[in-house]
């Protein structure tokens, strides 16, 4: 229980730090008035507008107002969409979640078993193939993989659409692209932590007890490796957010990744701020979930 509270507190503090950084960055990124005001505005107009927006107050006051508003989901008005920045972000979130969840699920369903098998049959066919895949998966930039997939499956074979969001067929290529890097990474992490565990005395003892090999590998060993695997899954989920920027741009996928890129081009800072803050909150929540799952798997963390 102490442990849970401690992690929660840690999460809240991190989120506060993020809001400070976001606030400061928005102040550093130039004079917001020049974006809003008519270039022909007079100095008097400026002063009025400054007071109306509260920009004449101290930075601390401004930050507290920003924080209070943000807590209520108010990140100001989107300059480009002419709508509340927060709701613009929320409209784009489901598309990204759909993509992310599919990518993670597919990658976990493939990479974890593949990692386990390549550890058990070290040097075997699957292990060698997996190594080759991991090599290309990890060294190739994500946009290149995206373009190659489009070239093969859309242009040459004509099986799948090149871009946009729609049915299942639209989901395949972006999910594959997004999961590609994570797949390779997750497989390598699973393999190496399984190799460590399979060497342990308690695994030797399990064999000495005559337990079935399948149970030894998939229950006794995998549960020990699971802590590392879950942590990696958490990291992957976080890296998917950054991966989404490239993938969504390439496939014209209407999610938050593309929204962030476009908003930066449009100098639509309220949307960028809303996106960064909410994504940070999501990342912190994922980290919290990982910590809690880890503690649930490994009694040494939970019971101290």
């Amino acid at each position: 229980m102490d442990y849970v509270l401690q992690r929660l507190l840690h999460g809240v503090l991190t989120l506060l730090a993020v809001t400070i950084v976001v606030f400061l960055l928005s102040r550093l990124s130039g004079d917001p008035l020049s974006l809003i005001l008519d270039p022909a505005a007079t100095a008097a107009d400026r002063a009025v507008e400054l007071a109306r927006l509260g920009l004449d107050r101290s930075y601390i006051d401004q930050y507290l107002i920003f924080l209070g508003n943000a807590l209520g989901g108010d990140f100001g008005e989107s300059i480009f969409y002419k709508a509340p920045a927060f709701s613009v972000f929320m409209q784009h979130l489901p598309a990204t979640l759909e993509l992310g969840v599919v990518a993670i699920a597919v990658s976990a369903a493939i990479a974890i078993p593949a990692g386990v098998v390549s550890a058990v049959r070290k040097g075997g066919i699957l292990d060698t193939a997996a190594k080759a895949f991991a090599l290309t998966g990890q060294s190739a930039p994500i946009f290149w993989i995206a373009l190659m997939l489009v070239l093969v499956f859309s242009v040459v074979l004509g099986w799948l659409p090149t871009s946009g969001r729609g049915g299942l067929s639209h989901l395949v290529l972006p999910a594959l692209t997004l999961g590609w890097y994570s797949n390779a990474f997750l497989m390598r992490v699973t393999r190496s932590s399984m190799l460590d565990v399979l060497d342990a005395d308690y695994i030797r003892l399990a064999r000495l007890e005559g337990l079935p090999e399948r149970r030894i590998v998939w229950v006794h060993a995998l549960k020990n490796a699971a802590g590392t695997i879950v942590t990696t899954l958490g990291l992957m989920t976080i890296s998917l957010v950054t991966g989404a920027v490239v993938t969504e741009t390439v496939f014209a996928w209407p999610g938050v990744g593309r929204l962030i890129v476009e908003s930066i081009f449009h100098r639509d800072f309220p949307v960028v701020q809303a996106a960064v803050t909410v994504i940070a909150a999501i990342v912190i929540l994922i980290n919290l979930a990982v910590d809690l799952i880890f503690a649930w798997i490994d009694p040494r963390v939970r019971l101290g």
């Binding site: 005395d201 308690y202 064999r207 000495l208 007890e209 005559g210 337990l211 020990n224 490994d298 009694p299």
Partner: peptide, 24 residues
């Protein structure tokens, strides 16, 4: 051998600290 190990003959290893599985 799996049917013999643990049933007809058993073995104890040297280090009790690493002989038990920490997560069960």
């Amino acid at each position: 051998m799996s049917a013999i190990r643990g049933r007809s003959m058993a073995m104890i290893l040297q280090d009790p600290m690493s002989s038990l599985n920490p997560v069960f």
